[in-house]
């Protein structure tokens, strides 16, 4: 009977012990649903995304929503004062969250957020990077790999061009951004394992 849900997509890490597991899950679902809808709305605006098959649109979103949320909500992880702001607006320190049962994923999220924010990307760059994160042809269950790959390449080219234009003296930024993709996969895997463990409990 774990009493905490240490995910910032929740309004608060505290779980009402009177509530059943199903009720806790329902409440959590209501909390993150608007964020997931925003990811879908974002995807719909990526030029070419709506031209993919419906099956592939769903597959990309199912596989990539967590990673997109990590990028979009990197600022919830304050590396200076080592706090995480939950969707309810309250900040919790790393020590507090650790005492609530947060594990390695928390540290990894801090590391990722710090490195991403330190790149100092503007909104347009971040948005294009997020599109690259979402449109990945190697996600499982993609039926038309060629179409997704073509869109992915177009987006990567656009990102490189934008970064080169905006940061002419910092050519490493584009490489650093691409290296964030495997980091996000790793965070996604860790998160899936924690979700599974939570469900088992």
């Amino acid at each position: 009977n774990r009493m905490h849900l240490v995910c910032p997509m929740n309004t608060s890490p505290h779980v009402d012990p009177q509530k059943s597991g199903h009720e806790v899950w329902e409440e959590f679902s209501h909390s993150f649903t608007p964020a997931v809808r925003e990811v879908v709305e974002f995807a719909k605006k990526i030029p070419g995304f709506r031209d993919l098959t419906q099956h592939d649109q769903v597959s990309l979103l199912k596989a990539g929503t967590f990673e997109v949320l990590v990028v979009r909500f990197a600022s919830l992880f304050d590396v200076t004062d080592r706090t995480v702001t939950f969707l309810g607006g309250k900040k919790y320190s790393v020590d507090t969250l650790r005492a609530m049962g947060a594990g390695d994923l928390l540290n990894s999220m801090f590391d990722f957020s710090e490195k991403l924010i330190n790149l100092g990307l503007c909104e347009e760059e971040m948005s294009l990077f997020t599109a690259v994160v979402l449109v990945s042809a190697d996600r499982s269950g993609i039926e038309n790999v060629n179409s997704v790959e073509a869109l992915q390449e177009t987006l990567i080219r656009a990102l490189r061009s934008l970064i080169t234009k905006n940061h002419p003296n910092e050519s490493a930024i584009f490489t650093k951004l691409l290296l964030k993709l495997p980091d996000l996969r790793s965070l996604n895997n860790m998160h899936s394992e924690e979700l599974l463990a939570f469900k088992v409990h």
Partner: peptide
């Protein structure tokens, strides 16, 4: 949210949002 077993109902949320759930849109 990889949610392979759709435990979080993620696929349902995504499908509804993709199709444009008119019922949930403000007037």
């Amino acid at each position: 949210f990889s949610d392979p077993a759709n435990n979080l109902g993620l696929e349902d949320i995504i499908r509804k949002a993709l199709m444009g759930n008119l019922e949930e849109r403000p007037e």
